[in-house]
Every structure is written in structure tokens, then in C-alpha cells.
């Protein structure tokens, strides 16, 4: 028999290491032709930290993303990036890039203020132009600015780093400030369960994530979709089997450790939620791990909801489902 069920799962996630310093740094140079070198330590493992660094630099400097070239994760070139973990790179390396850009802009501001004859604090850098927020007719292009920089023998270089504002936690009770900022999420997921075979079909999944400020909407969606794939797999198909004698992993291959294929995916509706804050670069927060988490409890709850049973253990494999359903039938027949 096929039965459907719905589950809700929520989470919050502290960005960066827990109650520990975990700084990251960046170097920036705006070149005479308005192209920019951004150098970060952060390892990009496909999640997009380099793209994030480019976007934060472009936004801060008032240039286009095409102007930015990012070099990353080469220890002889790039400063400390810390680990790509704890969903920290957008928040921490992003802030480091912003700080490095702000430093580089010191000379840019001074030069533009001289040329436009306006106070530095009135200057707006946006879309490859510099203008006064008080009088937008006072404006110059970026190439003009870089020309003025060259004429004066000034360089637009910056080094910046960021260390989240946390405290060490008190060993007695863990009190303190473990993280500077938190990401939040809610996932609602629908499944269909075959009570005869225990097969689970993931139907639909809505997953809303407070990312502060989305840097790149498609990358946000991609993280949520990929996280949902991994989170649902956590519950219904993935498990490491350990040989009880040798304690070796029995299924170290992709044919025996079952991750979902495209045919196993639900229809996913990712939602990026914005929230107001100053801590992250333009308010941005991490998403890598939050993307995964809420679909795990949501899947557990949805399968439970379909059967009218509560599951407290993972994984929930077909055999567990058949067993739970039979036990429930037996209990109902007795009662």
C-alpha cells in the first residue's frame, strides 16, 4: 500500500569554529586598467568561495565581477585562509576580502576626492563609476580614476583579515559567545512510502534558508538542492557498514554505499530568506552545512507521518519501514 506523509525540519547553525579564533585573510590590488587581483587562502571545493570573494570585491570596489581575478589556496601566494569548514568562508573570508578592498580604497578615495573636489565620505563607488552621493553630476569613470592614481604614483593595494567576534567558552558550563552569527532554515518535505516493500519516493521539498544576504541566487539554490540530496540520503539510503571482526568498512564503493541518483530526487523549491545584519560581508552568512541539515529531520518526520509511527533512529531503510508498519498493524489488531 502506498501512503504519503509530510514532515517539518528546522535548524540553526553557528558560522565558524566554536568559541575559538579562526581568522582568514585576503590581499587585493586594483591594477591600472581597472582589473583586480584578489588573493585568498580559502580552498574552494566547488561550493563557490572564490566566486563569493570576487563578488564581494566587485561590490566593495564598485567594479564588475568580470574585472576580478581570484587566486586561491596556494600557500606561497595566499595568506592564511583557515579550513573550508564550518560554513565559514563566506562570512570570514568574505569579510577579509571586504577589509582588504577597503584598505585598497583608501588611496582610491583620496584620489577621487581630489579630482572631483568633494569630501571622501560622500563618494560612492558603483558600476565602474565614482560619484558624489550629494551631487551625482560630480562623477568619474574607474579608468579615469586609475589614470589619476598612476599620475600621482599611488597604488591601490590592500591586505585584510577577519576573525569572528567570539569568546572562548567556559569549560565548566560552555557559557560564552561561541559564534558571531547564525544561519537558520526550515524544510517541509513530502514522501510516498510503499508499506509492502518499504520503498520511499521523495515527492516535494520546500527548503527556506536565512542566508543574510544572497551573494549569488543560483549558487544559493545549488547548495540547497545538493544539501537536500545529501540530507534525504542520510535518512533513506546511506550507511557505512563495519565488519564486526576486522572493523573494516564493508562498503567503501559507490555501488555499495548508496547515494541518490537524479531519479531519486524530490522536486525541490529552494527559498533564500534575507535578514538584517552587519556582521557578515554585506550581511551574508554561511550556507554550506545549513543546506544539508533540515532535510534530515524533515525526511524522518515525513516517513513517520506516512506510517503513523515515530522514528528516533537513523537510517530508516526499507526493512525498517516494513518492520515498523507490520508492528503497527500487529499492535492495532491486538488492541
Amino acid at each position: 500500500m502506498k501512503r504519503r506523509g509530510t514532515g517539518v525540519g528546522c535548524m540553526f547553525y553557528g558560522i565558524g569554529n566554536t568559541g575559538l579564533p579562526n581568522p582568514a585573510a585576503a590581499f587585493v590590488e586594483v591594477l591600472p586598467d581597472t582589473s583586480v587581483n584578489v588573493i585568498v587562502g580559502a580552498a574552494d571545493i566547488g561550493q563557490g568561495s572564490s566566486t563569493m570573494a570576487a563578488a564581494v570585491a566587485a561590490e566593495t570596489l564598485g567594479l564588475a565581477i568580470e574585472n576580478i581575478h581570484v587566486t586561491w589556496a596556494d600557500t606561497q601566494v595566499a595568506p592564511e585562509g583557515g579550513a573550508t569548514s564550518a560554513s565559514r568562508q563566506t562570512f570570514i573570508t568574505g569579510n577579509a576580502v571586504k577589509n582588504a578592498c577597503t584598505q585598497a580604497m583608501g588611496e582610491l578615495r583620496r584620489t577621487a576626492a581630489e579630482k572631483l573636489e568633494v569630501p571622501e565620505e560622500d563618494l560612492v563607488f558603483r558600476n565602474r563609476e565614482i560619484y558624489s552621493s550629494k551631487d551625482e553630476t560630480k562623477r568619474m569613470t574607474y579608468p579615469e580614476l586609475m589614470g589619476a592614481m598612476s599620475y600621482r604614483g599611488r597604488l591601490a593595494v590592500g591586505a585584510g583579515y577577519y576573525n569572528p567576534k567570539t569568546t572562548y567558552l567556559n569549560p565548566a558550563d560552555m557559557s560564552g559567545v561561541p559564534y558571531e552569527v547564525y544561519s537558520y532554515a526550515t524544510c517541509i518535505l513530502e514522501v510516498e512510502v510503499d508499506t509492502d516493500t518499504g520503498e520511499v519516493t521523495l515527492l516535494k521539498c520546500v527548503s527556506a534558508h536565512d542566508v543574510g544576504t544572497p551573494i549569488n541566487p543560483k549558487m544559493v539554490e545549488g547548495q540547497i538542492e545538493g544539501g537536500t540530496a545529501m540530507g534525504t540520503g542520510f535518512v533513506i539510503s546511506e550507511k557505512i557498514d563495519v565488519d564486526p571482526k576486522t572493523l573494516a568498512i564493508k562498503n567503501p564503493t559507490l555501488s555499495k554505499y548508496i547515494i541518490g541518483t537524479n531519479m531519486d530526487m524530490p522536486e525541490i523549491y529552494p527559498i533564500a530568506v534575507s535578514s538584517e545584519g552587519e556582521a557578515g560581508p554585506f550581511g551574508a552568512k554561511g550556507l554550506g552545512e545549513p543546506a544539508l541539515i533540515p532535510s534530515i529531520p524533515a525526511t524522518m518526520a515525513a516517513i513517520g507521518n506516512a506510517l503513523g509511527v515515530t522514528f528516533t533512529k537513523t537510517p530508516i531503510f526499507p526493512a525498517d519501514i516494513v518492520k515498523a508498519w507490520k508492528d503497527k498493524q500487529a499492535a492495532e489488531n491486538q488492541g
Binding site: K218, G222, A229, T261, N262, M263, M265
Partner: peptide, 19 residues
């Protein structure tokens, strides 16, 4: 499209953007 792409595993994307 889904059928054709069903023999390629991806661990990052959840396949939606690929499809």
C-alpha cells in the same frame, strides 16, 4: 533528460541545475 542522465552520480548539486 532525466532518464538519459540517470547514470551519472553527482554529490554536490542534487542534479536539478544539471537537468
Amino acid at each position: 533528460i532525466k532518464e538519459a542522465m540517470s547514470g551519472n552520480l553527482c554529490r554536490c548539486t542534487g542534479y536539478k541545475k544539471i537537468e
